[in-house]
Design a protein around this nucleic acid. Sequence first.
DNA 1: CTGTATCCAACCCGATACTG
DNA 2: CAGTATCGGGTTGGATACAG
Lengths: 133, 133
Amino acid sequence: MSQGHSDVSELVTAEDQACTVRQVLDRVGGKWSIGILVAASKGPVRFTELERSVEGISRRMLTLTLRQLERDGLLVRTVYPTVPPKVEYRATEIALELYDSLVTLTTWAERHRATIAAAREAYDREHTLTPVS
Amino acid sequence: MSQGHSDVSELVTAEDQACTVRQVLDRVGGKWSIGILVAASKGPVRFTELERSVEGISRRMLTLTLRQLERDGLLVRTVYPTVPPKVEYRATEIALELYDSLVTLTTWAERHRATIAAAREAYDREHTLTPVS
DNA sequence: CTGTATCCAACCCGATACTG
DNA sequence: CAGTATCGGGTTGGATACAG
């Protein structure tokens, strides 16, 4: 039912709302950001651990995404100057809060998984049938 | 404080969680999806109305994004076979629910706007200073 | 172990022109 | 009014090789 989703007659919403959401998406919309965030949310992780746990990521993209997340203050990078170098990444407080917020998206997706799949099937069926009569 | 974000010892979470979130992002992660969704959430809108209200969008991207959202069951397209053609797009129930979920992201972004900005400044300062000693 | 550097393919998106 | 078609640039991301 979604009870009207706050019709407070545009205090700031609408255009600004879209804008703010886009800012978040620009941060975590990348192909690997979420996977890394999830992996790091369970405690400090090392580079190679991430490389293994985030299935399919390349070394290059791991580095790039880590740097981006660190820059936005979502991860903290700690270097231990040992003989084989050791680097740990841990999620910050705001990253954990973001993770919590993302859970709402998860529940939405799970609630409507069937509906979405059906919509896709219907659309594809409707738009695939015999290009010419 | 983020009180631990549900430590239910991985019932399904972790890797699946990331996967599900990515599915959502694949749907609304595009440059224009959110803008269109927001515009359509306030009632049925016509093609040209969208073209004006979603600042900066091209006709091509408007069409493509509309088709994608329609395919996922987030928008319904209605054609009125009048003399100047008239097409209306309206958000579905699940789109409105998604919109509600996205609001949590907005509040997160607003709560930590300053923190993130500071983190960026610090990072950039740290990584710009004198490349060579 | 933890990265960097380079090259390259795929994709996203904008600009423009044309159509029922 | 509501699209479609085509081209081309910019960005994203993968493969591979090299380095502190």
